[in-house]
């Protein structure tokens, strides 16, 4: 359920990055104030633990398919929300780099979807109240299962929203939800079960570890967490709002920012000229001129535009296909050239 770069629009990607970066900065600041030095290596190896755990497959009961651990809840319970969030973000970063799971731009989304919900929502608002003081194994288990389930549902829901807002997929909301939520209900149940299992194992084998970690945590109370959520929500709404405003008034965000940069200073007139010429070239040569194929599918037709299909000369698209082939050929040639050059050097 990792969000992928290819499905993202720049506005959504940047918004989620802004939210996640704000959360990272906040969590680091908070953690620095309260951290016990002993926690620093513990966080490090816990990240490696989650990373290793995610590499083990197991059979999901009744389905025969295999799943793996997400780890958000177990980290939040063992390390507290701030440390857990940093650990989870680091695990996702390493996965984005080493497994290309998701991607670097989607990393902001993934940190949000898989980190914020378990650490800052499910843990303080669901796990803590149910688990109470944390002595009865049964309550701990129920708390773990319920909170893992809800965190995953929220995460899956966010994936749906992010994909739809990016507008690269044609899936209508209801179908998409039907596709995602039930799968994550099953995954969430297993996640909760595994989380509960690990907690009760630790409770029986090293009760002092759980106790010391739960009592030594000064930020277990609900209020500061609510504040954080409000702050994150505001940051996200503001950046999201601003970006989508840019996106709507300047259909091409990148073009807009470049224009804005180049408009400054004395060169304005000149660059304006270049930009204009550029646009002319683009208009003349563009393959599929307006880019935006108004869709005829009922779900995507919400934007209300009439389905006026651009008339394309078949010749244009031939140029596109031929050109693409030439470009690929050239790139392969360049690559081959560098390779032979390297070989000759060594």
């Amino acid at each position: 359920m990792h969000m992928a770069d290819a499905l993202l629009s720049p506005a959504v990607g940047a918004t989620m990055w802004a939210g996640s970066l704000a959360a990272l900065g906040y969590a680091s600041k908070k953690l620095k104030e309260t951290i016990d030095n002993k926690t620093i290596p513990l966080m490090g190896v816990m990240g490696a633990f989650i990373f290793a755990a995610q590499m083990i497959n197991f059979t999901i009961p009744g389905t025969g398919s295999s799943g793996h651990l997400g780890g958000g809840m177990i980290l939040a319970i063992m390390l507290g929300p701030y440390a857990a969030f940093l650990v989870l973000a680091s695990v996702l970063t390493v996965q984005a780099l080493f497994f290309a799971d998701g991607g670097l731009l989607a990393l902001g989304c993934n940190i949000w979807n898989l980190g914020i919900y378990p650490c800052f929502l499910a843990y303080p608002l669901i796990y803590k109240p149910i688990a109470g003081k944390g002595t009865s194994t049964r309550r701990l288990s129920i708390a773990a299962i319920v909170s893992a389930l809800i965190a995953l549902q929220l995460g899956a829901f966010s994936v749906v929203l992010e994909t739809l807002l990016s507008g690269k997929s044609e899936l209508p909301l209801d179908t998409f939800l039907l596709l995602m939520q039930p799968i994550h209900l099953a995954i969430g149940l297993v996640e909760g079960f595994v989380t509960a299992g690990i907690i009760s194992y630790v409770q029986s084998a090293r009760p002092e570890f759980l106790e010391s970690n739960i009592t030594s945590r000064p930020h277990a109370a609900g209020t500061p967490v609510k504040n954080i959520l409000i702050v994150f929500a505001i940051i996200t709404v503001i950046t999201g709002g601003a970006l989508s405003w840019f996106a709507s008034t300047h259909p091409d965000g990148l073009e807009w920012s470049i224009e804005k940069i180049t408009r400054k200073g004395e060169l304005a007139q000149q660059t304006q000229g270049i930009a204009a010429a550029l646009r002319k070239v683009q208009e003349k040569t563009a393959f599929l001129p307006d880019y935006n194929f108004p869709s005829t599918s009922p779900a995507a037709g919400k934007d209300g535009k009439p389905a006026s299909w651009p008339q394309i000369e078949p010749g244009t698209s031939v140029a596109g296909i031929v050109g693409s082939a030439i470009v690929l050929g050239l790139i392969m040639l360049i690559g081959f050239g560098i390779k032979t050059f390297k070989k000759r050097q060594s």
Partner: peptide, 17 residues
Amino acid sequence: LFVSQLLFLYRYIFVLA
């Protein structure tokens, strides 16, 4: 703190794996 977390994680991924 996040960067040292990343460094620790990298160091112990291989050991724990």
